[in-house]
Write a protein that binds this DNA or RNA. Structure first.
Length: 846
RNA sequence: GCGAAAGUGGCGGAAUUGGCAGACGCACCAGACUUAGGAUCUGGCGGGUAAAACCGUGAGGGUUCGAGUCCCUCCUUUCGCACCA
C-alpha cells in the first residue's frame, strides 16, 4: 500500500462506502483455489507424536460414478465444517478421502462405451476429485486410497488368506440370491424387498452355487452386545443393527417320528406352550420331506406349489400377500413331553433358513399357527392363561393369546408355573431327558462375498485336482486383475474366460491348477479402508498398528443412513477380527456416527427419471462454492431431509456479498476515533459474544448448522444496524476490526474461500485454518436489561423493562404497579402472581 | 401388522430446560437511491380488526398459573422391519 493511500484512509474514515468492493465469488475462489493447490500440507495431519490432541473426522467414501451429486456435497460440507472447526480449536485433524472404486457400474459403462473399467473409473475419480477441490474440502490427498488399485486390493486378498487360515472364510454350496440384472450373487443385506438393492424393480432369483463366505455369525453375539457401547450412534441405526442380527433365545426339541428311527428337531422360543402343540410344520425344503412323502405324485405337486409360493412371496417382498397353506404328510410325530401323537404337516410359512426349518405349531398361542389351524381345522388347545384367572372365574382369553405374563394349565407337572419359570424348567427337563436343549438362534447369516464379476478383488484361491482348494501363497500377492478382459453380463465371471488368468500352477504340488474366478463383494473394500488412511502408503502391511492406535477410534463418522446395516455392520465385524489377529487394539471402529438426511427437490428424491437433478458443478459455476456449501448447511438441520431451492442459494449468495462489502468497507479503519464506550458499542460486543456462544455450542452439540449460520446472519444485521454509530465514531475502530475478525473466523468452517480472502483483507498473513477460534466471554454476552411480559390469566397484557437478575419480589412489585395492569385488575381479586425471573410475570385473577 | 421419526406462516425452517410462537432465510408488498434494477438500503409481512378484542403449532381430550414442548386417544407422512417360530 502506498503512503498516499494510507493517508487517504486515515483522513477519510467517514466515507467508508467508497472503499467497499463488490463480491466476485469466481475471482476470489479461483485465486485461493490456485494457492491451496500449491499448499497441500495445509490439510496434512501432524504425526502421532503431535502435541495437539487428535481428531479423526471421516466421511463415507464415494463410489466414483462420474460426478458428485448434492448428497455428497451435503455430506462433505458437514464433515469439512467440522474438520475446519477442529483445526481452529487446535486439534490435530485427520480428514482423509478415498474411492470405493470397484463395482458393477464400471462394467456396464465398459459395455456401453467400450471403455475399460479401469480407465472409466480413474477418469471418474479425477473428475470427482476436481469437484471436491473446487468445493474446497480440506482433504489430505496424501492419504488417498483407491480400492481398485493393486496396492489396496492386495490387502483385501491378504485379509482373505488370514481369514481362511482362521476358519473365518469358507466355501460351500448354498442357495444364493441372484440378480439377473447384475448377473451376480447378492448378500442377504443387498436384497431389499425381494429385489436387488441396485435394481429395485428386479426380483432376485434363488440359485445353487459354490460360494465363499465370511463367518460373521461367529461374531453375532459380540456384534450385538457391543451395540450397547455405541452411545455416539443414532438410536435408529443401533435398532436396525439389533434387528438385523436378530438374536432369539429358545430351545430345540426333538420329536420322534412315528414308526421310524428319525427325529425332527424344532426350534421354539416358547417351550412353555409345548403341551399346546397340535402339529409339526416343516419347511417345504426340509430334508425330511422327501422321506415323508416319498414319490406320491399328488403330494409332490402340492409340495411344488408350496415352494413356488415361497419364491413368489420372496419376490413380492410382502409376506402378507401370501395365504398360508400346507398339507398333512400322513405321518405323525410324538411330543416328548406327553407322548402325544401329532400330525406332521408341510407349510409354506415355514422358512428353511431360520432355526431348524421346522416348528411345533401351537395355534392357541401363536398368531401364524392360529391362522393356519383355523383354516385347516386343526385342534386349538389352550395351555396358558392370563394371571388374573388364577382365582375366580375361568374365561378363555381372546385367541391367539401370546402374552408372557401368564400361567400354565393342562401342562402336566408344569401346570401352575409362570411362563418364565416354565421355560427354564421345561428346557432343563428336555436336557435331562436328552431330547432337547436351550439354544440361541440368529437371523444373521454368514456373509457371502463371491461375485461372478470382473471388476473386483480376485479371491486368492486355487483349485488343484490333486490338492483340492489351495490358497495363493502370501508372497505371490497381489493376484492381479488382468487388464484385457471381454465383459459380458452372461455366463458367470468374465475372468473365467481369460485362460492366462485361470491357468496356474499349484503352489503345493506344482501341478496344474485353476484359479478362482469370482471376485469379492465391494463391501470388503470399505470394511477396513479407514484403517489404511492412517498410513496409506505402507507397502509392507495392510495397516500400521501404531498409527491406528493413535488415530482410532474415528471420532466422527458421517454418511447416509442407507449404510446402517451393510457397511456399518461389516466394518464392525472386520474390526473385531483385526483385533483378534492382534493388529489393532480397539474393538469398535467408530466412536460417533452421524447420518445426514437426503437432498430432495420438489419433495422427491433427486433422480434422472424425475429430471430433478441439481448439479453441483452448475451451482458452483453460478453462485460459487461458498454459497453452495453454506446453503447445503443452512437450508435444514443436517439430520433432516433438505429440499433444494435455488433461490435459497441465491439468498445465501446475497448474504456473503453483504459480508464481503461490510468487511472490505471497514477493514482499513485505523486509529482511535473514539475512546468512550457507547451503548451501541456495548450492544455490538454483546451480540458478538452471543453469536460466538451459539456457533461454538452448535459444533459441540446438536450440529444445527442452520441455526449457527442464522446467528452469523444476525450478527451481520447487527453490524449493519450499527452503521450510523460506526460512521459517527461512537464505536471504536478497534472494536470494528475485532468484530470483523471474529465474524470472518466464524464463517471459515462454512465458507472457506471468502473467509480466507477477507482474512487477508484484514491484514492477516497466516492461514485462517490455523487461526484460533474466537473466545467466548460469558460476561460480555450477558444482557443487562430484559423486557418481561406481564400476563393476566396467561394472556400478554403489558411489558416492563427490568435489570437482569432482579429479585422476584421486586419484579412482582413493578408488575403490579404497571399502569396498564393496574387498570386491568382493578376491582378483581388477585389469586396468585407467578414470577419467573427474567422471563415473565403471570397474574391470576378471578 | 410391528417399531421409529416427523407434522409450526405462501415456502425452507427457529423456539437447548413447560415461560413473549414464527429467529434466520426465501417469496411477496411498499418506499428510498436510480437512466435502469433481477444491485443496494429502509420498512412491512400468521389469520382477523379501522384499531383493538379475539383465533392460531395435524385433530380431539387432559395435566398446569402457563403447553409447539408433558400425558392419553386418533389422523397423516416418511423411514426401518416384516411369516424369524
Amino acid at each position: 500500500m502506498s503512503s498516499q493511500e494510507k493517508t487517504e484512509i486515515l483522513n477519510a474514515p467517514e466515507q467508508p462506502r467508497e472503499r467497499e468492493q463488490r463480491y466476485d465469488a469466481q475471482k476470489i475462489e479461483q485465486k485461493w483455489h490456485q494457492r491451496w493447490q500449491q499448499k497441500p500440507e495445509l490439510y496434512r495431519a501432524e504425526p502421532p507424536n503431535s502435541a495437539r490432541k487428535k481428531y479423526y473426522v471421516l466421511e463415507m467414501l464415494p463410489y466414483p460414478s462420474g460426478a458428485l451429486h448434492m448428497g455428497h456435497v451435503r455430506n462433505y460440507s458437514i464433515g469439512d465444517a467440522l474438520a475446519r472447526f477442529m483445526w481452529m480449536k487446535g486439534y490435530n485433524v485427520l480428514h482423509p478421502m478415498g474411492w470405493d472404486a470397484f463395482g458393477l457400474p464400471a462394467e456396464n459403462a465398459a459395455l456401453k462405451n467400450n471403455t475399460p473399467p479401469r480407465e472409466w473409473t480413474l477418469q471418474n475419480v479425477a473428475n470427482m476429485k476436481r469437484q471436491m477441490n473446487r468445493l474446497a474440502f480440506s482433504y489430505d490427498w496424501d492419504t488417498e486410497i483407491t480400492s481398485c488399485l493393486p496396492d489396496y486390493y492386495k490387502w483385501n486378498q491378504w485379509f482373505f488368506l488370514k481369514f481362511f487360515e482362521r476358519g473365518l472364510a469358507y466355501r460351500r454350496k448354498s442357495k444364493v440370491n441372484w440378480c439377473p440384472e447384475c448377473a451376480t450373487v447378492l448378500a442377504n443385506e443387498q436384497v431389499v424387498n425381494g429385489c436387488c438393492w441396485r435394481h429395485e424393480e428386479t426380483p432376485v432369483e434363488q440359485r445353487d452355487l459354490e460360494q465363499w463366505f465370511l463367518r460373521i455369525t461367529k461374531y453375532a453375539d459380540e456384534l450385538l452386545r457391543d451395540i450397547e457401547v455405541l452411545e455416539g450412534w443414532p438410536e435408529k441405526v443401533r435398532t436396525m443393527q439389533r434387528n438385523w442380527i436378530g438374536r432369539s433365545e429358545g430351545a430345540q426339541v426333538e420329536f420322534q417320528i412315528e414308526n421310524t428311527a428319525d427325529k425332527v428337531s424344532v426350534f421354539t422360543t416358547r417351550i412353555d406352550t409345548i403341551f399346546g402343540a397340535t402339529s409339526i410344520q416343516l419347511a417345504p425344503e426340509h430334508p425330511l420331506v422327501s422321506r415323508l412323502i416319498g414319490n406320491d405324485p399328488d403330494l409332490l405337486s402340492r409340495l411344488d406349489e408350496l415352494i413356488n409360493d415361497q419364491r413368489m412371496a420372496r419376490e413380492a417382498g410382502d409376506p402378507n400377500a401370501l395365504e398360508k397353506r400346507g398339507f398333512f404328510t400322513g405321518t405323525n410325530a410324538i411330543n416328548p413331553f406327553n407322548q402325544e401323537k401329532i400330525p406332521i404337516w408341510i407349510a409354506n410359512y415355514i422358512l428353511m433358513e431360520y432355526g431348524t426349518g421346522a416348528i411345533m405349531s401351537v395355534p392357541a398361542h401363536d398368531d401364524r399357527d392360529y391362522e393356519f389351524a383355523r383354516k385347516y381345522g386343526l385342534e386349538v388347545r389352550i395351555v396358558i392363561l392370563p394371571r388374573r384367572h388364577e382365582h375366580g372365574t375361568q374365561q378363555d382369553p381372546a385367541l391367539p393369546y401370546t402374552a408372557m405374563d401368564s400361567l400354565l394349565i393342562n401342562s402336566g407337572e408344569f401346570s401352575g408355573l409362570g411362563n418364565h419359570e416354565a421355560i427354564k424348567k421345561m428346557t432343563q427337563f428336555a436336557e435331562q431327558n436328552a431330547f432337547g436343549k436351550g439354544t440361541v438362534t440368529f437371523r444373521l447369516r454368514d456373509w457371502g462375498i463371491s461375485r461372478q464379476r470382473y471388476w473386483g478383488t480376485p479371491i486368492p484361491m486355487l483349485y488343484c485336482d490333486k490338492c483340492g482348494i489351495v490358497p495363493v501363497p502370501e508372497k505371490d500377492l497381489p493376484v492381479l486383475l488382468p487388464e484385457k478382459v471381454e465383459i459380458t453380463l452372461q455366463g458367470g465371471s468374465p475372468l473365467s474366460r481369460v485362460p492366462e488368468f485361470v491357468n496356474a500352477k499349484c503352489p503345493k504340488c506344482g501341478g496344474v491348477a485353476r484359479r478362482e474366478t469370482d471376485t469379492m463383494d465391494t463391501f470388503v473394500d470399505s470394511s477396513w479402508y479407514f484403517y489404511r488412511y492412517t498410513n496409506a502408503k505402507l507397502r509392507t502391511a495392510a495397516i500400521d498398528s501404531k498409527a491406528v492406535e493413535y488415530w482410532f477410534p474415528i471420532d466422527q463418522y458421517i454418511g447416509g443412513v442407507e449404510h446402517a446395516i451393510l457397511h456399518l455392520i461389516y466394518s464392525r465385524f472386520w474390526t473385531k477380527i483385526m483385533r483378534d489377529m492382534g493388529l489393532i487394539k480397539n474393538s469398535e471402529p467408530v466412536e460417533r456416527l452421524f447420518t445426514q438426511g437426503m437432498v430432495i427437490k420438489n419433495g422427491a428424491k433427486m433422480s434422472k427419471s424425475k429430471g430433478n437433478i441439481v448439479s453441483p458443478d452448475e451451482m458452483v459455476e453460478r453462485y460459487g462454492a461458498d454459497s453452495t456449501r453454506v446453503y447445503a448447511l443452512f437450508a435444514a438441520p443436517p439430520d433432516r431431509d433438505l429440499d433444494w431451492q435455488e433461490n435459497g442459494v441465491e439468498g445465501v449468495s446475497r448474504f456473503l456479498a453483504k459480508v464481503y462489502r461490510l468487511v472490505t468497507r471497514y477493514a482499513n479503519f485505523t486509529g482511535e476515533r473514539s475512546t468512550k464506550a457507547s451503548a451501541g458499542s456495548r450492544e455490538l460486543e454483546r451480540k458478538l459474544h452471543q453469536t460466538i456462544r451459539r456457533v461454538s455450542s452448535d459444533f459441540d452439540g446438536r450440529w444445527h448448522f442452520n441455526t449457527s449460520i442464522a446467528a452469523i446472519m444476525e450478527l451481520v444485521n447487527a453490524i449493519t444496524a450499527a452503521d450510523a454509530q460506526i460512521a459517527s465514531g461512537a464505536i471504536t475502530a478497534a472494536q470494528i476490526r475485532s468484530t470483523m475478525r471474529s465474524l470472518v473466523l466464524m464463517l471459515a468452517p462454512f465458507a472457506p474461500y471468502i473467509a480466507a480472502e477477507l482474512w487477508e483483507t484484514l491484514g492477516e498473513q497466516s492461514p485462517i485454518l490455523r487461526a484460533t477460534w474466537p473466545q467466548f466471554d460469558p460476561e460480555l454476552a450477558r444482557e443487562e436489561e430484559v423486557e418481561v411480559p406481564i400476563q393476566i390469566n396467561g394472556k400478554n397484557r403489558s411489558r416492563i423493562v427490568v435489570p437482569v437478575g432482579l429479585p422476584e419480589a421486586q419484579v412482582r412489585e413493578l408488575a403490579l404497579k404497571d399502569e396498564k395492569i393496574r387498570s386491568l385488575i382493578e376491582g378483581r381479586e388477585v389469586a396468585k402472581v407467578i414470577v419467573v425471573p427474567d422471563k415473565l410475570v403471570n397474574i391470576v385473577v378471578r
